[in-house]
């Protein structure tokens, strides 16, 4: 099994174990599609942001946060 497939499996288990979580994603097509995918697969809340705003995020006091599409 390739290292990438192992990483996919490991990540899927991390996601499964750590529900519920919130997703913070970038507001472009790829970011929104990723958000929709996460929402469907994990029923998580998705926060779409124009660009990284950590000051706002930290006030959310999230139990567990998943972030992608930091900048594009």
């Amino acid at each position: 099994m390739s290292a990438f497939v192992e990483a996919l499996k490991r990540t899927s288990q991390i996601l499964k174990r750590n529900q519920p979580f919130q997703v913070v994603t970038h507001g472009d097509v790829d970011g929104v599609a990723a958000g929709a995918l996460a929402h469907t697969a994990f029923d998580c809340e998705v926060i779409i942001q124009k660009r990284l705003k950590l000051k706002n995020w930290t006030t959310l006091n999230l139990p567990c946060s998943w972030i992608w599409e930091v900048l594009s």
Binding site: T11, I14, L15, A34, L54, W57, W66, I67, W68
Partner: peptide, 14 residues
């Protein structure tokens, strides 16, 4: 991100 969150995971392609 490290400073801002205790628990996080990043999925990205950049």
């Amino acid at each position: 991100i490290k400073k801002g969150f205790h628990r996080y995971f990043v999925v990205d392609h950049h």
